[in-house]
């Protein structure tokens, strides 16, 4: 009998933990379709789409999603274009202090983040005259993502044997051809991982665009959500819940697309 009791207790405990994490999700599913949502998750009676109707009456909603996509595209592009070659060089070329450089980069970038970095970041972007511009936000976000991206991509590149490129070179491939034909395809799943991770981080970043952008029309979705209040100054849960659901869709789509297209797997070397 004892194992049975154990299993029941374990199942009960696991369900409790599961419920703890599932409830907010449940709210996200129910509240957007509720005429008057509260902070507790309840099945809406009757379900309605009027919240979405109100949401789309606000012209800023679609614009903010567009702004977010623009930022994501810019930052992902910049991180891949700068990070991939940097990781390749750090993986393939030995120079004195290489590891120290890598670890300092990672350490400093993970210690000084968020609120601690925002004042110097603001001053820097202000000095560059890029306040209230997408390029300023893109640079700031990409700068924050690059160290960890480079570190992860370097690890991916390290696991590609040098002999791949060397054999291509012996066959007459130029450095560029070897990169294009051999290194890039093998490291592509790594790039996909970094792209999705960066996209998710940028999509959810509130602080940097909130501080560096001023014009409301330039607000990305994460910042716009902050502005949904009723006339009485209360959070407008109808709009917030509907917008939250909308806000998660692009990330889900991205995940499914990348997983289908590239798969979060890695060729690495060949088992033998």
């Amino acid at each position: 009998m004892k194992p049975f009791v154990h299993r029941v207790l374990f199942a009960a405990f696991a369900s409790l933990i599961g419920a703890f994490f599932a409830l907010p999700m449940l709210w996200l599913v129910f509240a957007p379709f509720d005429e008057s949502p509260s902070l507790s998750a309840a099945v809406p009676r009757p379900p309605t789409l009027s919240n979405f109707g109100d949401l789309f009456d606000n012209p800023q909603v679609l614009r903010s999603l567009g702004n977010s996509l623009l930022l994501v595209g810019g930052v992902v592009g910049l991180v891949l274009i700068v990070g991939a070659p940097a990781a390749y060089v750090l993986s393939r070329i030995r120079f004195p202090g290489r590891n120290l450089f890598l670890y300092m980069l990672l350490l400093l970038s993970s210690v000084i983040t968020g609120a601690a970095a925002i004042v110097p970041l603001y001053l820097l972007i202000f000095g560059l005259n890029l306040i209230d511009s997408f390029s300023g936000v893109t640079l700031a976000l990409a700068g924050g993502m690059l160290p960890a991206s480079i570190f992860i991509l370097k690890d991916f590149t390290d696991s590609i044997p040098r002999s791949y490129e060397e054999s291509a070179r012996v066959f007459g491939a130029s450095t560029f051809q070897a990169l294009r034909d051999v290194v890039f395809p093998v490291v592509r799943p790594g790039l996909a991982v970094i792209a999705v991770w960066t996209a998710v981080q940028v999509w959810g970043n509130f602080l940097v665009p909130f501080i560096l952008l001023r014009t409301p029309d330039k607000s990305p979705a994460a910042v716009l959500m902050y502005s949904f209040y009723t006339e009485g100054g209360q959070p407008n849960l109808r709009l917030i819940s509907a917008f939250s659901l909308l806000y998660t869709v692009p990330i889900l789509v991205l995940y499914i697309f990348v997983n289908r297209r590239y798969g979060f797997r890695f060729h690495g070397g060949i088992k033998r």
């Binding site: 791949y164 070179r169 066959f171 007459g172 130029s174 395809p185 093998v186 690495g268």
Partner: peptide, 20 residues
């Protein structure tokens, strides 16, 4: 000359076959 212009073929210890 660079490796590609020497007209040699090399078989590596790990074969260096391209997995993709």
């Amino acid at each position: 000359l660079p490796p590609g212009e020497r007209n040699v073929a090399m078989v590596f210890q790990d074969y260096a076959l391209y997995p993709h």
